[in-house]
Simulated scan of single mutants.
Amino acid sequence: MTVIVREFVPDDAPAAVRVRRSAAPYTVTTPASMLNERRAAPPARRYLMLVAERDGEVVGYGNAGLVHEAPEPGQAFVTPVVDPAHRGHGVGGLLLRAAEEHLAALGAREVYAWVRDEPECLEFARTRGYRSTRTLRYLRLDLASAALPEPPAALPPGVELRTAADFAADPRPLFAADSEATADEPTDIPFGLGDYEEWLADTWEDPLLDRELTVVALVDGAVAAFSAAHTDGEGRYVSAMTGTVRAHRGRGLATLAKTESLRRARAAGCMEAYTSNDSANGPMLAINRRLGYEPCATEVRHVRSLG
């Protein structure tokens, strides 16, 4: 059987989404969001999207690029994904090779990848020179039956809950809060969201972002915390990012925003909710446990030095 790896074209989006969903059912993606990934990628990312065909059928997807926001040059990422029904036929290896060649030509020195915590996936990474660094926990909530906390009878003084839709005319305050929260996330590659125009294209204009379900907590009129919601229109909801600016941490505002977002999502017809946290992110893991989330998958971060 013949396997061919080639560059992604827009018509590949439905098949590539099917592959992603089959390999990682705890993530949410749509053809529109995949096309936005391609459109919104800044030139400095040198973003490459690939598909793998086996006898004419798309059975694998991959992407790769530079972490251009990182303070140290030469950092890169790669994500090869193979439909589980087609593993063991060299598809993942060919996707990874093509992606690494692309990155090596750009001068990348270290390549990072998330690997499903399953024996065959971990062995795939190990035999290709990747070593593990940290873990990411995926959690699921049966939103249809979850016993979500009731909304408080009254909000704390000065606190107000709004949605991202209220910032449609000027989302810059959300960008500032997202930048500060992201900078403090546990990660192997420290980076910030320094470019507002990139954030608009990548995050604000992402078709998955549901602005009506994304809840923002204001304190005295300023953004203090937020919980960004992604939905796929098929009853699935993902907490894309929940964060609090440094000056207001420890007050329960992230929990307040996330819980309100989940209540709104259930009222809008979402049936299941997913979220993910680095294993070192104790505060968010604790919040999610209190909300009733249960572990559903683990991915292990791996890195390989090129050259």
Rank of each mutant, 00 (worst) to 15 (best):
D11A: 06
D12I: 06
D12K: 11
D12Y: 08
A13F: 01
A13Q: 03
A15N: 02
A24S: 12
Y26A: 15
V28R: 14
T30G: 12
T30S: 04
M34C: 03
L35S: 12
R38K: 14
P43T: 00
R45L: 08
R45K: 15
R45F: 10
R46H: 15
M49G: 00
L50V: 04
A52N: 01
E53D: 06
G56S: 03
G60E: 11
N63E: 14
A64M: 01
A64C: 01
V67M: 10
H68N: 15
A70F: 08
A70P: 01
P73N: 13
G74I: 00
G74K: 10
F77P: 06
V78H: 03
V78D: 12
P84E: 08
P84Y: 02
G90V: 04
G92N: 05
G93N: 03
L94A: 15
L95Q: 07
L95E: 02
R97F: 03
R97E: 01
R97A: 14
A98M: 11
A98W: 14
E100K: 12
E101L: 12
A104T: 09
A105N: 04
A105P: 05
G107I: 05
A108F: 10
R109M: 11
R109I: 13
V111S: 00
V111C: 00
V115L: 00
D117T: 04
C121E: 09
R126C: 07
R128H: 00
G129I: 10
Y130C: 04
T133G: 09
T135C: 04
R137K: 11
L139P: 08
